[in-house]
Amino acid sequence: MSAFWTLLKRDLLLQVREGGAVGTALGFYLVVVTMMPLGLGPDLNLLSRIAPGVLWIALLLSALLSLPRIFEADDEDGSLEVIATGDLPLELATAAKALAHWISTGIPLALLAPVLGLLLNLELSAYPVLVATMFAGTPAISFLGAVGAALTLRVRRGGLLLALLVLPLYIPTLIFGIAAISAATGGPSGVQASFLILSAISLFSLVLGPVAAAAAIRFQTQ
């Protein structure tokens, strides 16, 4: 298990010391959310109504942008093959890398979301639920995204293909994330139900993602 934590720590350190990736994702998130009022008009009532959807969709796109980096650098310098042949089961190695992606990208994006909510006039009662759902939902983005990143690892210009493969898989996360927020602002369903289902989806992808990603990597590094 110590190999797992070492790998996680290494990936996080690389993210911090290389810089760039996290900042780019955050900047992209900011710019996309800023584009929305410019495209839809500055009507605050309208913005307040669509704010949860805009925040979630922009978050998905920002996270998508950084997905290829989960395995790319390690594949280029050959360390992915070393990891694949090492003692640590590849399933756990991919889990560590996806977890590092969540900590380095998912959490910062989830923390930025309420700030951007101010720009969109999001209702005050929605903020705690917004942050909670994003914390509960972003693991699914990283772990399902790892599958897409592994599948398109050696595909030239794989980024577009990655989006096509992964975005349909994000639909349940998106739906229940928004269902929970709209419930908090007076929607018909309960916050708790949507939140629990969202967490269940994240737990499910926590199991499915690393296994599928490991299989895809094993086929390519053989």
Binding site: L165, P168, I171, P172, I175, I201, L208, A212, A215, F219
Partner: peptide
């Protein structure tokens, strides 16, 4: 791999 991942998630997508 993608086909199996897809068929695992398909019921969740349908439900959601």
């Amino acid at each position: 791999v993608l086909g199996l991942v897809g068929v695992t998630i398909l019921p969740i997508i349908k439900f959601s």
